[in-house]
Computed example of a mutant assay.
Amino acid sequence: MGKVSEWNDDRGFGFIAPLDGKPARVFFHVRDYRLDGRRPEVGEVIRFTAQRQADGKWRTLTVRRTVPAVRQAKPAAPSRAMPWRPGSALPGALAIVAYALLIAWAIGAGRLPLEAALVPLALSAITFVAYALDKHAAQTGRWRTPESTLHMMELAGGWPGAWIAQQVLRHKSSKRAYRVVFRAMVVLHLIAAAAWLWGRA
């Protein structure tokens, strides 16, 4: 048995510290983790089988979770730490409705052709697919899409698709730093779009 001592979720690998201290640490990959539907957590106690590699380092063959993760005692976290609390999706839904109304107004006012409505739909679809591929890569330990690339797609106009992916796929939804930048991309895009449309008067 051992305990997860390090875990890099973006790259899909980490290290286990055996409870008996032999060896000092063992490398493991997310593919070795035998618990579908969840990710490893630092501090959780696991059972594992390992094998010494040709370079002398140890690597797991299988990893199974045995008990809930051991966490240090912390003060009660505020409710905002719960990413899926009721009503948390409301701001994003309202932003999408406002965006749709902005585009509808621009088309009705003759500032955009009717076909322009297809552009945000296409960008959103592309961004949604990018999120889905990145989640699959995270689960299988393959090459990830850089967060900066996802943010650029959001800024370009694919943010509605990104928001839907976060709700449906549960991807990039629990990382606070990512959500902060995502919201900034939404605000910047809406401001830029409104300013551009207003200037076409």
Rank of each mutant, 00 (worst) to 15 (best):
K3Q: 15
I96S: 08
L169D: 13
Q53E: 02
R31T: 11
G43F: 09
R144V: 02
K74A: 15
F28V: 02
G157D: 00
P40A: 04
R200Q: 15
Y99W: 13
A122Y: 02
G199A: 13
R11W: 06
G158E: 00
R170H: 14
L94V: 14
G2S: 11
S88T: 11
A106H: 09
F27S: 04
W143S: 11
W198H: 11
L118G: 04
F27L: 08
P23A: 07
A24E: 10
A104Q: 12
A194V: 10
R52T: 13
A98E: 05
L112R: 14
S79E: 08
K3T: 15
W196E: 09
G92E: 03
R111T: 06
V180E: 12
L61Y: 02
L118Q: 02
I46Q: 05
L35R: 14
K175V: 14
V187E: 00
E44K: 09
Q51W: 02
Y99R: 03
H171R: 11
A165D: 05
V129M: 07
W159A: 00
L155A: 02
R25G: 01
Y99Q: 11
A138Q: 08
E115W: 13
Y178N: 06
L169M: 14
P113S: 06
W163K: 08
H151E: 00
A201C: 06
L35M: 09
A162W: 04
L112I: 03
A54G: 03
M153K: 11
R39H: 04
A73K: 05
I164G: 00
G43T: 03
H151R: 10
N8A: 13
A195I: 13
W105Q: 06
A132K: 07
R38P: 04
P18Q: 09
P40T: 02
R200I: 06
S79G: 04
W7D: 03
Y33G: 01
R111I: 07
L169A: 11
G110A: 05
T149S: 09
G108K: 03
K175L: 10
A177S: 15
T145C: 08
K172T: 10
F182H: 15
N8Q: 12
L169F: 08
V187T: 06
R38Q: 14
W7Q: 07
T66Q: 13
V186I: 13
W84S: 07
F182C: 12
R144C: 05
A130Q: 05
L123Y: 04
Q51D: 00
R31S: 14
H171L: 12
A54N: 08
G21T: 00
W159S: 01
A100H: 05
R71D: 09
Q51F: 03
K175N: 05
D134E: 12
D36G: 01
A106M: 02
L61Q: 14
Q72L: 15
F48L: 07
W143H: 08
K57M: 07
A81Q: 10
A69I: 08
K135F: 05
I103T: 07
S5H: 11
